[in-house]
Computed example of a mutant assay.
Amino acid sequence: MSDPTVGSLRVSGANLHYEVRGQGPVLLLIPGGTGGAASFDGVADDLAAAYTVVTYDPRGMARSTLDDPEAAQHVAEHADDAFRMLELVSPGEPARVFGASSGAIAALHLLTARPERLTRVVVHEPPVVEVLPDAAEHRALLARVRETFHAEGLMPAMAVFAAGLAKGGDTVEPKAEPEVPPRAAARAEQTMAGLPYFVGRIVPAFMSYAPDIRRLKESADRLVLAGGQDSPGELPHRATAALAERLGTELRSFPGGHIGLTTHPREFGEALLKALRI
């Protein structure tokens, strides 16, 4: 597969690094966590056999710089960035979108804000904890993460955050750490570099987001909700399952756990291709 076309898109308050590969209908991939466009390295080429695949680093991550490095972050602004990316590569034409984790939250908001621009939206484990009956407990978790981050630093805050994600409502048997492909392991430095921004500003903004259930129901025929087959009981999976129940839609099972995109790229890509079919 040939190298992607690389560019930079100016949006309000930021410059977004993006990459385009393949041909066919447009498929925009919105990353979660700190991986940026590189988090799709394991699936982008295979998807590009059927689609014009657009990947990018969200504002403040990796190669996408903020005008004000201390600026507060908002889901609606990140969703608008995704819309601007679609307008760049596919002006006025409906497109498909996939979002993972925090990127899945941006994709959900994009669907409620610009439904006319989207033919299919697939989201994998958006941690929309506000839809859960125990949402107050998770607001308290976010407060503990924020307090720990400011008082003790990054790694103690990450430990609090990881424990909160893992315990969920169900009992989850301890699992061995999944093996990560070498290419993904090589991104560890970028992942670590982005953690302070992610924990300090993305997590509080995104995990306090309450999706518009009414508007999502209006577009439910275009929305696919997916959870990892290895992650039931973990907080992002619980939230996604609760959202599926609220919308009266199926929760599809994708290979691996919350980071199945990284640990099972080939199988994850195959599941995504099936989910994208209209």
Rank of each mutant, 00 (worst) to 15 (best):
G92V: 02
F206Q: 03
T240C: 14
M85Q: 06
H124W: 08
S2K: 12
V160K: 04
F268T: 02
A140R: 09
L154K: 01
Y51S: 08
A79D: 03
A157N: 07
T119W: 06
A72I: 07
G32L: 09
V131W: 06
P133T: 04
D45R: 14
R84I: 01
Y197K: 09
R183P: 06
A50T: 10
S2R: 14
L88K: 06
T191I: 15
D134N: 13
Y51F: 12
A136S: 10
T52S: 11
V203R: 03
V54W: 02
Y56V: 00
T263A: 12
G36Y: 05
V224R: 14
G227T: 11
A242I: 05
L216E: 04
D68I: 00
A37N: 12
D68H: 03
G33T: 08
L261I: 15
G257D: 02
E173C: 02
S2M: 12
A95Y: 04
G256T: 08
G42E: 06
G103N: 05
L66N: 10
A239Q: 01
V89D: 11
L216T: 00
R144Q: 05
R21C: 09
G169N: 11
T55A: 08
A106C: 11
P181L: 02
F149W: 03
P178N: 08
P94Y: 03
E125D: 06
L28R: 06
A210P: 05
E130F: 00
G22K: 07
L66W: 07
Q190I: 11
L225Y: 08
H17F: 14
I278C: 15
P182T: 06
R214T: 15
I259G: 12
G99T: 00
R222M: 09
A184H: 13
D41A: 15
H74P: 07
H237W: 12
L88Q: 07
A162V: 11
A184I: 13
F98P: 01
V20P: 03
P182W: 06
D41T: 14
L142Q: 04
A188Q: 15
P126F: 00
K175F: 01
E147G: 07
H264S: 10
R63M: 04
P174Y: 01
V54A: 07
G168C: 03
E189Q: 15
D212T: 01
R139C: 01
L88P: 00
A136L: 08
L47E: 05
H17Q: 08
D3E: 14
R139N: 04
L243E: 03
I278V: 15
T191C: 12
L118H: 04
A38V: 03
E173P: 02
N15P: 07
A241Q: 13
A95E: 09
A95Q: 09
